[in-house]
Every structure is written in C-alpha cells, then in structure tokens.
Amino acid sequence: MSHAAVQISGVRFTYPDGREALCGADLRVEHGQRVALLGPNGAGKTTLALQLNGIHRPDAGDVEIGGLPVTDPNLAEVRRRVGMVFQDADDQLFMPTVREDVAFGPANLGLRGDELASRVTKALEGVGAAELADRAPHHLSGGERRRVALATVLAMRPDVLVLDEPTSGLDPAGRRELIGVLQGLPITQLAITHDLPFALELCERAVIVDGGRVVADGATADLLADEELLHAHRLELPFGLDPRTVPPSRPR
C-alpha cells in the first residue's frame, strides 16, 4: 500500500491566544502499527492528535488519513476513520445512558434500527462492557468509564485509534483490562502516554514530541533505553524498569 495510515507533514499550528503548539511536525504511521506518543506536558501531543480528525486545522502543512487529506469535504469520512478517545472519559460520555452514547457515533453515520443496535452490542462486547449498556455514565467506575469511552469510538469501526492518556487514573486491574482490549484490536493505534511501561508493552514503535515537533522516533525499547534522550525531554523510566530485559512488543 502506497499511502500510510497517518501522514503528517510539516504541520504548524498556533492557538488563538498566540501560543505556537506545533512548529513543523512530521509523522508517518503505517497500517496496523501501534505507536506511542511520548513527551513532556505541553509538548504538543494532544494538539497533534486533534489535527488527525480536523478538530484543529493546521496553519501550514498537510494531514492525510489513509491517503485522504483532512479537508472540509472529507471531514465526515476522516472522523469515521479516526477514532479519538479523549483523556477525560466524562468529556466523551455525554449521553444519558451508555447505550445511547455508544450509538451516537454510528447513528451520525446514518445507521438505524437493528443494524445500529447490533453495532452497539458488538462494540460493548468488544471491551467487555455489554452489561453496562443501560447504566448512566456517571454511575460507572473509572475503569468501566474508560472502556465504555473506547466502545463509543470502536462502534464507528475506525481505521486509526487515537488514545489520549488511556491509562491515567486507572487502578492496576483496570489498566490491565484496557491493555488486554487494546492488544486484541487489529487496527492502527496512536497512544499519547506518560505511562512508559504501557508504551513498552503495547507499542512496538515510539516517537517523542517536544517543542511542537517530533524529536525522536524508533523502536520503543531502544528509545526507552536511551537514558540521556529521555532525560532531555523530561521523561524517566519507573524505578527498576530496564527496557533491555523486557521482551520487545512484536510488530504484527
């Protein structure tokens, strides 16, 4: 395949308040790859992610999803292709019940009736949350909320999954369940994270974003073994973790 799952070239972006968040970011992600987006707070990771489905539009440069440029006429299809899981699940779950929330995306795609219902059921089953369908989002635990947020996106059958801090605030069991679900998904994944063991376990490739551009790109284990590089970008391995002794996450 000639085109990549995600192609970002020379993207610059300045917020309305004048803060330059991206200054020439380049990134190419192949189909089926799982990539960790690492970097300090305020590096532009989330801003970069929001370029992928046209929530933010670049001041300069191009973004393509599966060869499709992110432009106004393509927005609906781009947003179908890119599933965005936001950091705060409370932002993502805005409907009165879980079922309606998961149905929101596919219903916007025009699905109705039985087809819609089966889409919702399958998405919830996919994250092990089928029994939560009739609950209200604010009555779910943190881990349940995160998995349901993932289901709302999976129900749209995206080609690329973008996760913003997927493990933040989860207890170890919730984190483990989430990793299990993500490992079972055969789609391109881009995960913004500070959780380096998570990156090492899930993603075969990692990039470091700092100062609004991609400053390092390589196999996750190699990147994490480079202490100097990590230190230069305010990253640090958890105490006792040596990426060289961990079997690497295999490219699929």
Partner: peptide
C-alpha cells in the same frame, strides 16, 4: 469542559443535530 465535549461530539460525526437512536 463544554469545549472538550463539543470536540468529542465532532470527533464522532456530530453535525448539528442529535441523531434519532430509539425509534
């Protein structure tokens, strides 16, 4: 939060009208 929720809605194809889900 309103802004973030709106972004989340746009990300899932919201185009100004709530879809009919239960008919």
């Amino acid at each position: 939060r309103g802004e973030r929720v709106h972004a989340a809605m746009l990300s899932r194809g919201y185009s100004g009208a709530m879809p009919t889900i239960d008919e």
